[in-house]
Design a protein around this nucleic acid. Structure first.
Lengths: 219, 219
DNA sequence: GTCTATACTTCGATAGAC
DNA sequence: GTCTATCGAAGTATAGAC
């Protein structure tokens, strides 16, 4: 009967910093570069402390994934509340940081069972949310469900931006302008020009206290 | 003046086995699992021998990438020689092993400069080959280059299959049937049914000595 | 909550014998 | 062409003091 080791509180500020640092390492050097020593060093903390909050490295990686997924979902839903779901999904899906992290987790999921389960479940939820909105939109836009099923649209709106962004990170842009303008032309035909992103430009008056804003992105 | 260390011949059978084994490890457990010790063990050879053929692990990974790229290019060109370039590209791009390895190398390229350069250059060549064939096909099919530029087609024919295959490996298939049938319908409209893959079914007579066949895939 | 100390494993790479 | 032997670094994880 060995009694379990102690684990740090989820509310800890240190814990949050460890998650921040881990994300940054994944973006810079990939998931394989995430080690307790490196995380500890970049968080200016002793490596043993990493294991205090996250007994194993998989625990750490999964925690990063969960936090980021929640934030992503909030960002997506906020965008979908507007009247241009296609533009919103496109904007959401072309976020560079989002794509880069997604790819790291996908790569991780290919080789780590625990991550894979988590990944499939979350991805399914994202797809469902998008599909429901597009099904409504398809009615408004008068698109024939047989000819172009919204289910396919969701997949395309995830696949195309991901590859575009990922290739651009590698300096490969052949065919990208043509692809982007093809997509934009289609979106524009249905939803007109994309409305400016809320929150970026300065509002007419009093830009203090933007009240209902989402919390800043983790890292 | 230290004189350089010895390096094994490129023609060596052992060297080829090391490449085979490395590819297998990448597919099973990802690029991060490729270590001289593991490669040596799975090749039933001393780890030091790995460094004899490939001074650093990056050298090993790049060699794997080059060999696989050459084989891929041959496979692609063989397919493109038929009269159904779109079907050929689709078939080429939906190869599971190909997609899995590509993703590993993409992930690798995101964090290793040497790999990144190699990657961009090769990917550009593949894109160019496909584009040239599609430009011809666009004339035959009477597709409006403005409305649907072949450049965009090449990107789409690379992006869509990659994401489909990659997601399926994770058990995520929502929207896939609709997407696949959408694509197939489009391809069929232009090129009819896909001709059976050459080499797979048994020819009428004497299936010995299939003469001009490509060498078997590495691994 | 944080750190010291430590046990144990695995890694990349090299020199040099066979 | 292959292996033995080895250095030095870095990894995960734990126990226990502060």
């Amino acid at each position: 009967m060995t009694r379990p080791r102690r684990i740090g509180q989820v509310t800890s500020e240190t814990r949050a910093v460890l998650l921040d640092v881990t994300e940054k390492i994944m973006l810079d050097d990939g998931y394989a570069a995430v080690t307790s020593r490196r995380v500890g060093r970049e968080a200016a903390v002793n490596p043993a402390l990493v294991h205090y909050y996250f007994p194993t490295l998989d625990d750490l990686l999964i925690a990063v994934f969960r936090r980021r997924s929640e934030w992503n979902m909030a960002r997506l839903e906020e965008g979908l509340r507007g009247g241009q779901p296609l533009h919103a999904i496109w904007r959401y899906a072309t976020d560079r940081t989002g794509v880069a992290l997604t790819e790291e987790f996908l790569a991780l999921g290919n080789h780590r069972k625990a991550i894979q389960a988590e990944l499939g479940e979350v991805a399914g939820r994202f797809r469902k949310v998008q599909l429901e909105v597009l099904q409504q939109a398809w009615l408004r836009y008068g698109i024939d469900r047989e000819e172009f099923p919204p289910e396919a649209a969701v997949v395309l709106m995830s696949a195309i931006p991901r590859v575009l962004v990922s290739e651009e990170a590698l300096g490969l842009t052949a065919g990208h302008p043509e692809t982007r303008s093809l997509v934009q032309r289609y979106l524009q035909g249905l939803e007109g020009d994309a409305a400016p992103e809320e929150g970026s430009p300065v509002p007419k008056k009093s830009q203090g206290r933007t009240s209902k804003r989402m919390p800043p992105p983790p890292r």
